[in-house]
Structure formats: C-alpha cells, structure tokens
Design a protein around this nucleic acid. Sequence first.
DNA 1: ATACATTTATAACAGCGTTATCTCGATAGT
DNA 2: ACTATCGAGATAACGCTGTTATAAATGTAT
Lengths: 205, 205
Amino acid sequence: MARPRKFDDETRAALIRDTADQIVSGGVESVSLRPLAAKHGCSTTAIYTMFGSRDALIEAVVYESVGSFTRSQESVPVTGDSLSDLLELGRAYRRWALKYPALYVIMIGRGGKRPDINPEDFTEDSPRMIAAKKAIETLFRRVADCAANGILGDYPIEEMGNSIWAGVHGWVSIEAARPVMIGQDADAAYERYMQSLVRAWAPVT
Amino acid sequence: MARPRKFDDETRAALIRDTADQIVSGGVESVSLRPLAAKHGCSTTAIYTMFGSRDALIEAVVYESVGSFTRSQESVPVTGDSLSDLLELGRAYRRWALKYPALYVIMIGRGGKRPDINPEDFTEDSPRMIAAKKAIETLFRRVADCAANGILGDYPIEEMGNSIWAGVHGWVSIEAARPVMIGQDADAAYERYMQSLVRAWAPVT
DNA sequence: ATACATTTATAACAGCGTTATCTCGATAGT
DNA sequence: ACTATCGAGATAACGCTGTTATAAATGTAT
C-alpha cells in the first residue's frame, strides 16, 4: 500500500552505530545529517522518515548506549563475596564511562541541552528509563546482598543504592568531563573512594 | 591610534549577562549571535572583537558563573560548629546548582561538547580553574575544621575533601539533569545523603 | 485502470558561526 | 598641517546546518 522501503532495520542500526562513533570521537555537536546520509548512500529525508529528527536520532543512540551500559553492568559476575561483587560493579561502571565519556554524559543528562525541554524522555516508563532501571536494579541487588551479609547496615536498600549510585556517578562524571585526571593514581583513589561510600552505610557497631 | 571603541566594558558585561540568561532559559545551544547583537544594537563583528568567538563568549559566561558560585560558597557563614558549617556549604552548593542547572552543567564539563577539545580551559592556572579552586579550598577549610574537631577522621584532608565534593556533585548533578526529582522529600533525602558522606570519613572509634 | 498511501529524492528555506572587505576615525611621524 | 597607519565596527558574503515543501516512485486496494 506504499512505496517499498529502500532501507531496512540494518541500515537503521548502522546509522545509530555511526552516529554513536561520531559522538564518541567528536561530541554531539559534531553530528551532522548530510555527511551521515552521504556515507550511507541515502538522503537526509530518509533519515527523517526513519527517526523523525536529528534529536530523535541522538535519542536512539542514547537508548542503545543505555542498553550497552546496562549489559556491561549485568555481565559483572556474582561470586558470592557480596562486597567484592559490589565493588566490581563500581569498577565496571567507571570503566564503561571512561571508555565512552561523551556517551556517558548525554546518557545521564543530554549534555548541554536544557533537560526540561524533552521531559517525556525521562518519564517513568520511557524506553530509556526502563533500560536504565535495569542497571540500577542490578546495583540494588548487590546492595541488598551486602546488607544481608552485614556489610551494609540496616537502612532502606533504595536509600543506600541511590546514595552509592550518586556517589559513583559524581566521581566518574568528574573524571569523564575533565581532560586530565585528578591524580596519577586515579585507579587507587577510586578504590579508596568506593570503600568510603560503603563505609558511609556500614552497620552501627 | 585607532578608531575609538563604541562599546565599553559595560556592554561587554551586559552581553555576558544576557548570554547567561539565555543559557539558563534555553540551554547553550539556544545562544545565537545575531539576535544577541541586534538586542544590544551592535553587529556580530563587534562581539567578535570583544570575545573572539561564540565559544569564547560562552567561556566568559562560564567564568562569571564560576565566580558567582564561588562567591555563594564563600558567603556561607562560619559559626564555629564545624559540622553544621560543612553541611551548610553542601546546602548552598545544591541551592546554587538547582537555581542555575544549565550553568552548573557547563561549569563542570562544558555540556555536550567533547571536553578534550579545549584542554587549555582546564589547565591548572586557567582563569576558570583558579576561580574553581577558591571554592574547593573553602570546602577544604571546613573539612579541616571538622577533622580538627574529631568530626572527621585522620585521613588526608585533600582525600576527604575531594570525596565529599564528588559525592555532593553526583547527587546534585543528577537532580540538575533530570526534570523530575528522585522523590518528593528531596530536601530531606539530600540531608541524609550529606550525613552519609560525613559518616564515610568518620574517625575510627 | 484508478485512487490512495507512503517512502525517498531534489531543492529550497531560514538560520547559523565565521570572515573578507571596506569604512571610519583617532593618533604618530614628518 | 598632512599623511600613513592601525584598530574598531558595519555590511555582506561563504559555507554550513536542520528542516520541510514539492514531486517522483511504487506498492496495494478498489
């Protein structure tokens, strides 16, 4: 009942992949539709029927990024040593963010753009938020494990989880936003920092 | 020895103020030179002789913002109750960031732009960094006070200060980046969070 | 065979940051 | 007093951007 599609889902995926690479190497501002279309042998209008707008294309990249990040969190093995498992989650978090700093930044807050312009992207059941929730639930499970084993105290899991997330995010986002590190021994400093975040919710002895 | 300047430092300041307002209300992307120039009765070239580029204009806004933020930190009174003083610093931090979320975001990392594009802005002695250092030194003083009074433990001041800063920044930046709050009782949750950050470096009993 | 719906391409529109060109005007050297 | 010089600013252009109006293409339904 219409002209047959010239570009399938694979083209769509390739566009997303290319845009993500572009963001990683040159930032969101460097994403431009005409060169992208030329590279994939289509017109910019084709991109518009596939995504709707440049913003929607970038939002698609964000969605894929959230997926990649969530998968990297979920693939951290559970050994049974609940403290080690929690710390390993924090290491994977930092590793992913420092590998794709530009993606991490737009994943969290959509970069320099005013966040309340597209509030529907942050709705409780927007695709992006559902994917993000999976990652934070992985964290909550490890936190609950630690609480069960007496590593963390008798506080609400959600409160401890959100706190540890905020703490990790704070450190990592500073690292991701700055060209030079805080110190030379950034890895060791991060280890000590994570331990302090655990101490913050230690059981009262 | 040249044509007399038509626009003085007051015009320059007005341009910075206007640009800051624009960023606050519409994000960095919404800053446009032609409307700005028209509003101030000058040409875009005049802006170029004053600042050099759109980027430099925004960097000037960032510099002023860092100044405003630093002043808001320094104006927090010192009562002598070192724990209260530290917490009040954290409240002022959050208040400023939530009042100007868009400014806070570009202050920390320059928004969606790839951060390593202008590394000279983050040099140890760039104006922006010098201003930022004043704020963090205010924090370090309060941390040192707490350590002297046995509120915080016998760890390096710099390590405790950086940790608390990262922690506060993490929480606040999440709040600033999202249109809706984490919970309804955001103020109370932040209070408990700050207390956890202090607990993280409590003296070993 | 005709009408309709939808994908895609071409080309245009309006806007952007930046810059080449030129004018203006005050000072410095003669 | 005259001229050269040099920087500030205006005008207009360049090349780029996201988006969209228009039209061509190509299926299905009638």
